[in-house]
Design a protein around this nucleic acid. Structure first.
Lengths: 303, 303
DNA sequence: AACGTCCTTTTAGTATCACTTCATGGACCC
DNA sequence: GGGTCCATGAAGTGATACTAAAAGGACGTT
């Protein structure tokens, strides 16, 4: 069953003559006649009959023409299917974020609502593997240290946070009494670092480089909540992001005075996914949440 | 939007690789790849993406594939549309009959029921125009005198009645006292005939030919009910069909002894219409009604 | 690290098919 | 009985979907 032949048949039902159909479809009457003949070849009963000098549909022809209308509408819907997928504000948006960002952003994202249906996932992976996550998630919230190689050009990047990394100390620690710290202060401290390949490691290496000697890495803990607990227990000091670190009464953050260490938190989206309006709006919500997060923290510091 | 391309896309969603799709559709992977490329050309967003060494659908591709399923079902329905039209027992059947047959058959046909939806119409036309009525009616109940040219071969003919034509006389008429009549008895009577071209005229001409002299035609009345009333009023005698003539207490029918005049009542159906099961079953009902009509009349005569 | 396998894509060539043009055959109207 | 309109057939042309063959990547193995 060829949709074009069906369309010709339907048109014949509406217009009542081969010539009129030909005019409507911008072809010659001969073409229409041949299409009808081809359609007839695949049908055991006559679909058309001559009425005077014009050609009209038989009952069977009308039955088939009615089915042809359904075919045409289904095709039209297919034509629009991609566009509707792009513009549907209630579409499903899959968001992935590394642990600490997930802990901070996901609750606020769910509260902010929006029309999109959200599928959230936490994904803590090595820095190089963040872009690959965009295969399975519409929005990937990733992080990397300042001065590390930028995300590949194949992904669309939306900056969310530019977050200083402070030194986390237990409240009783001698350095905790100071307002800020220098590289020399922390260079020889026992450190709690992250697993090899994970983003914050680069920042710690920058500190070691500035100090001129390797850092004394005691533990390797990726999860900030766990790391903070180990800091509180006196297991060492650690780098922690200023805005998204877990808040504990027995751990304080102190900025580094003489070395700029910070990380960037970005939303990675494949360019084609960024065409979906539900993705765009969700991305906007995430960006707003991040902005408020920065503002609130800066206000608190200033106050 | 080409349904074949859509089918390939859908198949890719189900099977997950170009090679599998090619195997399912009995073509080479190259053909599949080219069809997908062609479909992609008409779409602004990627429909497929490489996952490892196979090709999978993107979200947009899945959206389009879902629409493609609807297209496929619509096409399948179109494929079956004609067949369903043929086999639907509840289809509409349009029946036309000349006046006297309509008066006799239509009430019985409606009572007999059947699943078909009936559209009844009375059509009294000249003999030659009965076949043309099959253009507008599925079943045309027509009549013609014996020995008249048969119906054209393009129509399928179902004999319903072979009905003798008797002479209708008013009860007080001298000839009404006899059990049967001869041509000589009636040749010189004043006749009530039908309009020129209508079937029963041929039978009256046969009587005139047998008598060797033209009939004395006083009136020309097509409707038997009207003709019977005129006979009763003494306006003349008339030929009337034995089974379907209107019954009046003041009119009697007497057979002709020495000349066989009769008419055939047939159901005319176009061969392609005779494929519809609703038409077939209705035709069967009509034939049964006609058979019972003949049996009942013959029994009454014998008794 | 190199190789082989599997999958996809590209290129070139071929066959099919829908179209146009031109010509023919009915049907209707004066 | 021409003249007109309509539908259809034959021949030729262009687009296109296919196959075959080769090339390019990704993965697993040795």
């Amino acid at each position: 069953m060829d949709p074009r032949q069906l369309a010709v048949l339907r048109e014949l039902g509406d217009r009542g003559s081969v010539t009129a159909v030909a005019a409507a479809l911008f072809v010659t009457p001969s073409a229409v006649s041949q299409q009808l003949a081809a359609l007839q070849r695949s049908t055991p009963v006559p679909l058309t009959e001559r009425r005077g000098r014009t050609l009209v549909l038989t009952d069977a022809g009308r039955a088939l023409a009615a089915a042809a209308a359904d075919v045409a509408t289904a095709l039209a819907r297919a034509e629009r299917a991609v566009d509707e997928h792009l513009t549907d504000p209630r579409g499903t948006v899959r968001v992935a974020a590394f642990h600490s960002a997930a802990a901070t952003l996901f609750p606020r994202l769910l509260q902010a609502g929006g029309d999109a249906v959200l599928e959230l996932a936490d994904q803590d992976v090595e820095q190089a593997r963040f872009p690959a996550l965009t295969a399975d998630h519409d929005i990937v919230i990733a992080h990397r240290p300042d001065h590390s190689p930028p995300w590949p050009a194949s992904t669309s990047v939306t900056p969310l946070l530019h977050e200083p990394l402070d030194v986390a100390l237990p409240v009783g620690h001698p350095l905790a009494a100071r307002a800020d710290l220098s590289v020399a202060d922390v260079a020889d401290q026992p450190w709690i670092a992250v697993q090899s390949g994970y983003p914050l490691l680069g920042s710690l290496e920058a500190i070691a480089a500035a100090a001129g000697r390797p850092a004394r890495i005691r533990h390797r803990i990726n999860d900030f909540t766990v790391a903070a607990a180990v800091v509180a227990a006196g297991g060492g000091i650690a780098l922690m992001p200023r805005y998204t670190a877990p808040v504990r009464p027995d751990v304080v953050l102190r900025p580094l005075r003489d070395l700029h260490v910070a990380r960037r938190v970005d939303a990675l989206v494949r360019p084609e996914r960024a065409l979906r309006s539900s993705v765009i709006s969700t991305l906007g919500v995430v960006r707003d949440i991040a902005r408020r997060l920065t503002d609130a923290a800066d206000t608190a510091v200033t106050a």
